[in-house]
């Protein structure tokens, strides 16, 4: 009788161990207006409980005028959102490196020009697809 219960429990435990394998380090979106810095990973932002959180960058490739923008928001109010622009080729290159589940951090100056764009693409930012399928 005991074995009858123990086997499914053991199997379930093993399955859960496999399903949760791997480091997970979600980074919620935060904006520090004093330090002029914003960061967060796109997966966590997209799956936030609210409908206002976001982060990311884009490139506008007009002929002869490659420009980029990074933006983040943690609320609907203007003072809860930030945008910065860049014309810097190295930063545009960094924006090109952003993928769907990247972590993004950017800083800006008083003219709202991006001063640094940091991109990190790591396994621990990926969503747990197995859990999502359940």
């Amino acid at each position: 009788m005991k074995i009858r219960y123990l086997v499914p429990i053991a199997a379930l435990t093993l399955f859960c161990a496999v399903a949760t394998a791997g480091l997970v380090m979600p980074a919620a979106v935060t904006i520090d207006f004093t330090a002029r810095s914003a960061q967060g990973d796109m997966n966590t932002a997209r799956n936030s409980d609210d409908k206002v959180t976001y982060i990311g960058c884009n490139i506008a490739n007009s002929p002869g005028f490659p420009s980029g923008f990074c933006q983040a928001g943690v609320g609907a109010a203007a003072e809860q959102q930030i945008n910065c622009f860049t014309l810097d080729p190295a930063m545009l290159e960094a924006i090109h490196g952003i993928s769907d589940f990247s972590f993004v951090r950017f800083t800006w100056n008083e003219s709202f020009e991006c001063t640094r764009i940091y991109v990190s693409t790591q396994s621990f930012y990926l969503p747990d697809f197995k859990v999502n399928k359940k």
Partner: peptide, 26 residues
């Protein structure tokens, strides 16, 4: 943005700063 792209570099920066600043301020 296409019009901004026709400006010189300093003008592009100035206008992008004005544009982004206006959006940031709401």
């Amino acid at each position: 943005q296409i019009e901004i792209g026709k400006l010189d570099k300093a003008g592009q920066r100035e206008m992008l700063s004005k544009l982004v600043g206006a959006i940031n301020s709401g």
